[in-house]
Nucleic acid binder design. Structure first.
Lengths: 195, 195
DNA sequence: TCACTTATGGACCGTTCGGTACATAATATT
DNA sequence: AATATTATGTACCGAACGGTCCATAAGTGA
């Protein structure tokens, strides 16, 4: 057993709550008070466990990218074709656009726009995350090309960057309140670029 | 002549300085102190002239979109073809990516990601700006189609939304530190979608 | 039971936040 | 010269900011 007084809160759960808060409100607009409330942690325990607000963000970013990438990899593994995976991921944004609730966008995109230029640590983290995301798309494109659904006239590297770019754009468009039809149209044009 | 004591600062200049500050640092991270310094305005004059930090942002957004749209319209007017205009605008991002200096992205994109979900006034402003931007692209596509450089199998509305989406994505990618080759590749794929 | 270790509650820190109040300064009009 | 009007400088506001400190609580193993 661990020595000393046991934690009264769930670390993973607290981290996830913090992640959602940063995701929803951004870094600056999320106050320590906000975090303590949603994480259900006392201030002492907060600094003891997570170091600082900034370090917490780093951990949240890591959690976000890890779960996102893992989930995408799994989905790709289960997908019928590389192309259908790509289509499914893009079309996931239609649901997001249809939601009446809050549209949080993508934490990586949000953080990039808010902090990347003045915070090198965070910039590095999102750059890595973005590269991982591109990696998944690249794998999907490669598979699609092997399967004969995606033409060979463009490299997986180039096409995956293009896909990431459209994902990033769409996340922002949805957050900005673009209507569902617009999103659908963009996805369709994006998909035809793979044909 | 105007009555009362004359202003000791240039309103337009101050507004533009504020815009650059919001553009560079975002809304929350820009403090009133920051604004007073770059605008070269006393606190009293600030509140007298601009109302509040939030109202100032609204005015900055209006300034940003107006100058952006005006500049794009002029460029389109002078462009040889609708297609070449689109290409030129997209390729402008390559220079941005090459800059050693700060990459501020797009104020509308930044503000959308930071505020749109919780600030309806701002959301409305960026939605209007986005629509204007799309309008310019739409006009360019229409012209390109008339000129025979852009196929007719997709409507100007759809293609312009697609172009806006890639612009938004690219602005964020550049801000996130994407290298020049990546940006170039994305632009190329985007352009082939118009052919 | 007693030390040892870790977690928690709460008081406290100086600083900065956005914003207001008001006396004073600088102009135009009469 | 007096007055009306607008701009500015300065002092001030309460609240919130992120973060520290330390006494106390709640477990462990000896």
């Amino acid at each position: 057993m661990t020595i000393g007084r046991p934690r009264e809160f769930d670390t993973d759960q607290a981290l996830e709550a913090a992640m959602r808060q940063f995701w929803s409100k951004g870094y600056e607009a999320t106050s320590l008070q906000n975090l303590l409330e949603v994480m259900d942690v006392s201030k002492s325990s907060f600094y003891e466990t997570f170091g600082s607000k900034h370090e917490l963000l780093e951990q949240c970013l890591a959690l976000y990218t890890n779960t996102l990438i893992a989930s995408l990899r799994e989905e790709l593994r289960q997908a019928k074709t590389g192309l259908s995976f790509i289509e499914k991921v893009l079309k996931g944004l239609i649901d997001e656009a249809s939601t009446k609730g809050e549209k949080c966008g993508c934490l990586m995109v949000n953080v990039t726009n808010e902090l990347a230029q003045r915070d090198k640590i965070i910039a590095k983290l999102v750059a890595n995350g973005s590269k991982s995301l591109q990696g998944v798309f690249k794998e999907a494109v490669l598979r699609g090309q092997k399967e004969g659904n995606i033409p060979l006239n463009k490299t997986p590297d180039i096409l995956s960057n293009f896909l990431v770019n459209n994902m990033v754009g769409l996340k922002t468009m949805v957050k900005g309140g673009a209507d569902v039809k617009t999103i659908k149209d963009i996805i369709e044009v994006t998909m035809t670029a793979l044909k």
